[in-house]
Design a protein around this nucleic acid. Structure first.
Length: 442
RNA sequence: GCUGGGAUAGCCUAGCCUGGUAGGGCGCAGGUCUGGAAAACCUGUUCUCUUAGUAGAUCGGGAGUUCAAAUCUCCCUCCCAGCGCCA
């Protein structure tokens, strides 16, 4: 959530940020109207309570002096009925103000490109030598701002959908029978390769100072609401029937909410954590997109980087998280580009976001595999996570970034390391110590 | 799941039986003192409000009784111990 005090003090920057994100400022107008009502109401309530407290101590004195307190009692009863009705309407105002305040997006970092639509996001750099089919060369050049290295390949490799069925690496039909579309039974060496990716990412991040966390895979509404933007995302979450529990859609959320309502010590910051968890996503609204295979699924495993830090350090940490993720993809030898996501395509929490998009030669496209965001104090405020300084308690800054989302990375490997004859694919060298084999074929 | 004991400010703790301004300690910050420090003493330590007060709120959460609830009643959550069940 945004800083309400800051919003009252300098509303202009919030109007600017909203405009850049493609919202009109109506909900801000609405907020200010409700906030004024709330404050006016509060003033009256506090005055009444003050009068009540005076009468109350008067009663206590009268009783001590053996005088009759009846008239004072009646006065308190009268005041109480006024307070009751005012507080009732105050509650309604507060609830609505809260609902609107939670919709107000974070301010933007100055380096975020201001525009609508993901095609306008700025390509920061590209890496690796991509295998590009003749038909895709123009797209590739454009998508890398003409700076991408590539090698012409005679035709697009087999799609991962065909390959996993051909090589007996997954059973999609039976998963759709037992669980529905967008589920999968992974099989055989693909399971080992997935476990290798998990272990590789865990080791990689351990060596870079992250502690490893396997969080709860479900969260209460309170924790989930603090960690994410429920207004936008509640339709994408699975709810456990009859319980106040939601399946996590990323370990970002259980890790962010780990310190809910806590005050951390300044010396304990920064905290770097690597979360390992399954991610459950309803993918509502994604009908027709990537319907086949394991590219977009309801359940996958992800290793996530998360940082709690002091406000003055968070922009450096965004670069650190991006570098870690890039280094992982470089070590796997998967070509990619880095994109600075433009204002119209940012989530409400993020002040700035980089995506890493891997090259998928059989789709002839760059597709998102990593998303690294600085949420500044926005998430920490909703979760009430502070740290102690000599000048008082301040909200921490939080950042998150994918390290490896297994299914998409598996697809990237299958497509980029495929043999010309489509009979199999190589295991990236960095993973061989984890798999114990260097090739997957029939 | 059952029985019992708990939850008070960053931490520890008193108050609860018997309703009437939440007290103390530690830690931290500032001050007095000092050449400097320690000790001692003093002040402060959570949240809200643009009339910043002789203001309001706050004792795990919610509801109730009452003029008044940390305190009494009911419901819920979590923690601890014992018992039960269990991969």
């Amino acid at each position: 959530m945004i800083d309400i005090k800051l919003l009252r003090e300098s509303p202009e920057q919030f109007y600017d940020a909203s405009k850049a994100r493609g919202f009109d400022g109506k909900y801000l107008d609405e907020f200010f109207k409700l906030d004024k009502d709330w404050r006016d109401n509060l003033k009256v309530i506090n005055e009444l309570k003050h009068a009540k407290n005076i009468q109350s101590s008067l009663i206590s004195e009268l009783i001590k002096k053996h005088d009759s307190p009846e008239s004072a009692k009646n006065q308190v009863r009268e005041i109480n009925s006024k307070i009751d009705s005012l507080e009732e309407s105050q509650k309604l105002i507060e609830k609505e103000r809260e609902r609107i305040a939670r919709m107000i997006p974070n301010l933007l970092h100055e380096s975020v490109p201001v525009c609508m639509g993901d095609e306008n996001s700025v390509v920061v750099r590209s890496w690796g030598t991509a295998g590009v089919c003749v038909d895709d060369v123009n797209y590739f050049k454009e998508a890398t701002a003409d700076s991408g290295q590539f090698q012409i390949i005679p035709k697009r490799p087999a799609s991962h959908v065909d390959l996993i069925q051909e090589l007996n690496l997954a059973d999609l039909e039976r998963a759709s029978k037992t669980a529905g579309s967008r589920f999968y039974y992974l099989k055989n060496r693909l399971v080992k390769l997935e476990l290798a990716l998990v272990n590789y990412a865990v080791d990689f991040l351990s060596e870079r100072g992250f502690s490893i966390v396997e969080p709860p895979f479900m969260l209460t509404y309170r924790a989930m609401e603090g960690a994410t933007d429920m207004e936008t995302f509640k339709d994408t979450l699975y709810k456990i029937e009859g319980e106040d529990l939601y399946l996590v859609s990323t370990s970002e959320h259980p890790i962010a909410s780990m310190f809910l309502d806590e005050t951390m010590e300044e010396n304990d910051l920064p905290v770097r954590m690597a979360g390992v968890s399954p991610c459950f996503r309803r993918e509502a609204g994604a009908h027709g997109k990537d319907t086949k295979g394991i590219f977009r699924v309801h359940q996958f495993t992800k290793i996530e980087q998360f940082v709690f830090c002091k406000p003055e350090d968070s922009w450096d940490f965004l670069e650190e998280l991006l570098k870690n993720a890039e280094d992982i993809y470089r070590s796997l030898n998967i070509p990619y580009r880095v994109v600075n996501i433009c204002s119209g395509d940012l989530g409400n929490l993020a002040a700035k976001k980089y995506d890493i998009e891997a090259w998928f030669p059989s789709q002839g496209k760059f597709r998102e595999v990593v998303s690294a965001s600085n949420d500044t104090d926005y998430q920490a405020r909703s979760l009430n996570v502070k740290y102690r300084t000599k000048e008082g308690n301040r909200f921490v800054h939080t950042l998150n970034s994918t390290a490896i989302a297994t299914t998409r990375t598996l697809v990237a490997i299958m497509e980029n390391f495929q043999t010309r004859d489509e009979s199999g694919f190589a295991v990236p060298e960095a993973l061989i110590p984890y798999t114990g084999f260097d090739f997957i074929s029939k």
